[in-house]
Amino acid sequence: MSALKTRFTEAFGIRHPIVQGGMQWVGRAELAAAVSQAGGLGMITALTQPTPAALATEIERCRKLTDQPFGVNLTILPAITPPPYDEYRRVIVDSGVTIVETAGSNPEPHMEMFRANNIKIIHKCTSVRHARKAEAVGVDAVSIDGFECAGHPGEDDIPGLVLIPAATDRLSIPVLASGGFADARGLVAALALGADGINMGSRFMCTVESPIHDKVKQAIVDGDERGTQLIFRQLRNTARVAGNAVSRDVVEILQGGGTFPDIAPLVAGSRGRKVFEDGDLDAGIWTVGMVQGLINDIPTCAVLVDRIIAEASSIISRRLSELVA
Rank of each mutant, 00 (worst) to 15 (best):
K5N: 03
V19A: 05
A32S: 10
S36Q: 14
M43T: 03
M43C: 06
I44K: 10
T51M: 15
A53S: 14
A54C: 12
A54W: 12
A54E: 15
R63F: 06
R63N: 05
T75L: 14
Y85G: 01
S95V: 01
I99R: 08
I99D: 04
N106E: 03
E108C: 06
P109L: 00
M111V: 05
M111K: 11
M111N: 11
E112F: 06
A116G: 04
K120T: 10
I121C: 08
S127W: 03
A131F: 10
A141M: 12
I144H: 03
C149G: 00
C149N: 07
A150K: 00
G151P: 12
G160F: 13
G160W: 15
V162T: 15
V162C: 12
R170H: 13
R170M: 07
V188R: 13
V188I: 13
D196Y: 02
G197I: 04
R203F: 01
V208G: 00
S210K: 06
D214A: 13
K215D: 14
A219D: 14
A219G: 08
D222H: 12
D222F: 08
D222G: 04
D222V: 07
D224F: 00
D224G: 14
L235S: 07
V241Q: 06
A242D: 05
G243R: 12
R248P: 03
P261K: 06
A268H: 03
S270V: 08
R271W: 01
L281A: 09
A302N: 11
A312F: 03
A312Y: 05
R318G: 02
R319D: 08
E322I: 04
E322V: 06
